[in-house]
Design a binder for these strands. Structure first.
Ligand SMILES: [Mn+2]
Ligand SMILES: [Mn+2]
Ligand SMILES: [Mn+2]
Ligand SMILES: [Mn+2]
Lengths: 219, 219
DNA sequence: CAATTTTGTTAGAAGATTCTAACAAATTAC
DNA sequence: GTAATTTGTTAGAATCTTCTAACAAAATTG
């Protein structure tokens, strides 16, 4: 069984994996906030456990067992976040820290029960998909608001970043998942957008913000 | 801040402390399921942290800081057990293992919210008192059913033992906290009792069981 | 009270996770 | 294509929690 530390590494590996599934030691070290030698020894441990493939001086790759293990931890994390919001009244900006800890609880029943109580949610409070019990992640095809053209109407579906600061910024503008956004105009100089949405006939969003909002076409 | 391991030792120390507040190394080793040398080194660590007083070859005693720290972990444990039963539909025999893990979550808000959602319960699902936010434990004066006389009517208030096996035994007889029990007769040979309670006009309970049921006089 | 048993201590080591310092390989820049 | 930079590795050590073996103190027993 994966230790708490190993679970955290697996999650980071899963999230950092690119199309080729490769992750560099330095990326992982930065993500995990530890030194490269620490990562070096941990990837050897994870390899011994059969969760990744490692060759000296090469980027590492999760095995299918590693991916499944990682996805199941992510499942626990996202179910917890959703439970905290839907059943315990927390704001979406408060739940990450707590879920970071509860994701390591060993009790299938506990997460089963959360899942049941919420009616088997498919996404977490930030719009990220919740892997199923087999560790399969449903593919979703959103695009960033910054890719939209003037006049388009879209649905805010997820975020590319869920930092507390960003979530608090969104709270301050009443930007919540599910709202319909219409692109009123785009400033050519800095790509900032003027958008309208329920109760906000005109709100300017910087490119930085638009890049972090994932939307889908209304319909 | 106490580590997970230290929190578990503090809890055991708190629960083992006798009237004099003293705990032997060997008791603690047995309770924690570790060797005596392990306890020996841990008590030195706990002493360095100011949580207990240790002198070579003497039993150890928690300081008031140690007692408070311990009581706050016990508070988290018992609030969690109650939450699992009242808000998540678990049976009283299923919650200890999960609470043993969740008690180590660092998030005052999380336990605050549990407490609020349940309307500030004062006891856990096994009738044990929940320490308050200051770590104060309310004194309760129950006595065991085995101390009762023929004819007495009492209220089942708590248990002296909450092992899964005992809880499952109680489930099998519909014995739940809050029920009213009347002592019909006591067998002089083995101290077993015949009792009656809602739906059960006559049920025989061994001395072992009667010793583990804490009751209070009806009224 | 002397012998035995129980309880507690020290010493030494192991595994897990982390670090820094030093060096080596790979990549990038000029 | 050498030089500089970045990336990755090894070695060696620290901290935490645990162990076993050996020994010492305290308590119990006859
Ligand atoms: Mn975590
Ligand atoms: Mn999330
Ligand atoms: Mn615990
Ligand atoms: Mn309990």
């Amino acid at each position: 069984m994966a230790s708490q530390t190993e679970e955290n590494y697996l999650k980071s590996l899963f999230n950092l994996a690119n199309e080729a599934g490769e992750v560099n030691i330095s990326e992982l070290a930065q993500q995990m906030q530890v030194s490269m030698p620490t990562v070096n020894s941990m990837v050897k441990t994870l390899q011994k456990n059969g969760w990744l493939i490692y060759e000296k001086y090469k980027p590492v790759t999760l095995t299918s067992e590693g991916k499944k293990e990682a996805a199941l931890v992510i499942r626990k994390h996202r179910l917890t976040e959703m439970f905290l919001v839907k059943k315990m009244g927390f704001g979406w900006e408060e739940v990450h820290e707590i879920a970071e800890q509860i994701e390591h609880i060993h009790s299938p029943k506990f997460f089963e029960r959360m899942d049941e109580m919420m009616g088997h949610p498919t996404v977490d409070p930030h719009g990220s998909p919740i892997p199923d019990k087999m560790g399969r992640v449903q593919e979703v095809s959103y695009f960033t608001l910054s890719k939209c053209k003037t006049g388009q109407i879209v649905n805010l579906a997820a975020l590319t970043n869920s930092s507390t600061e960003f979530l608090e910024f969104l709270n301050s503008r009443d930007l919540r998942l599910g709202i319909e956004l219409q692109v009123i105009s785009i400033e050519p100089y800095d790509q900032s957008m003027v958008v309208s949405f329920e109760g906000h006939p005109s709100e300017t969003l910087s490119e930085k913000v638009c890049d972090r909002l994932l939307v889908r076409l209304v319909g």
